[in-house]
């Protein structure tokens, strides 16, 4: 329990650090051209909504991000595997809604269909097969190495995220109006079926096919592993029977 509290407080501290540092970075004098293009892109996307005002978008984004953070903390902090799995569903669903806010409708739908739907079904199935939470509690002891790796990832994430936040701060003023012309509204085709499909089968053809082969290998491997084990079981049972017969 103590360890769990420690973990949650560590996470909260990391989140607070992320927020404070990004605000601090945003306060710093801006240098032109210092923002990564993808950051500009998302900021422009966020600022160019048709139906909701930019301010409403910003608040929707904040609320969703908060929910995601809470869900994420409970996913890794909860000792009950069922609660952890359901919190992960919530987190993934919120991610889907954020994609929707960014007008990436196809990606949003796929996010909910594949992650919050199909993959979570498998997680949940494993949880149900494994057993009851009173007996099966997740251990939370981690070594120093995993903490270091986690810390490194947190720093990387921070470096990646803060430019987005900064550029957004510079694009939109407190009332939510677009004040900078450096970030033009993005084409409305971004993230829809045709766009994603064209990208997948032109620029990203090789990674796409490579991932397909990787998944195929994983499937064949999973089948092989289960088959192998079953044969071993039979052998083991036969050996046990033989030794019992000898005895």
């Amino acid at each position: 329990m103590d360890r769990r509290k420690l973990y949650v407080s560590l996470l909260l501290a990391a989140a607070a650090l992320l927020l404070i540092s990004s605000v601090a970075l945003a306060q710093a004098p801006s240098t032109s051209g210092g923002v990564a293009p993808h950051a500009q892109f998302y900021a422009g996307k966020l600022a160019s909504s048709k139906k909701l005002s930019p301010l409403a978008m910003l608040w929707a984004m904040r609320v969703l991000a908060g929910l995601m953070l809470v869900g994420g903390i409970f996913t890794i902090g909860s000792r009950n595997p069922v609660v952890a799995a359901l919190c992960l569903v919530g987190t993934l669903f919120c991610t889907g809604i954020i994609f929707l806010l960014l007008h990436a409708t196809f990606i949003a739908a796929i996010q909910v269909l594949v992650y919050a739907g199909a993959i979570m079904v498998l997680f949940v199935f494993v949880v149900m097969s494994v057993g009851h939470p009173e007996r099966e509690e997740i251990g939370l002891s981690r070594g120093i190495i995993s903490k270091l790796i986690g810390g490194a990832f947190a720093v990387m994430l921070l470096l990646r995220v803060s430019p987005v936040y900064m550029s957004y701060q510079r694009t939109v003023n407190a009332a939510g109006e677009i004040i900078s012309k450096a970030m033009p509204p993005v084409s409305s085709k971004y993230g829809n079926v045709e766009h994603v499909g064209k990208l997948l089968f032109s620029d990203y053809l090789f990674p796409f096919e490579a991932i397909s082969i990787l998944l195929l290998v994983a499937i064949v491997g999973a089948v092989m592993v289960t088959r192998h084990r079953r044969r071993d079981d039979n052998k083991g049972a036969a050996a046990a029977a033989a030794s019992a017969g000898e005895g």
Partner: peptide
């Protein structure tokens, strides 16, 4: 424009 995918996405959530 992704209505069909969304229908299946929501239907898949029912299991939860």
């Amino acid at each position: 424009n992704v209505g069909l995918v969304l229908v299946f996405a929501f239907a898949g959530m029912g299991f939860i």
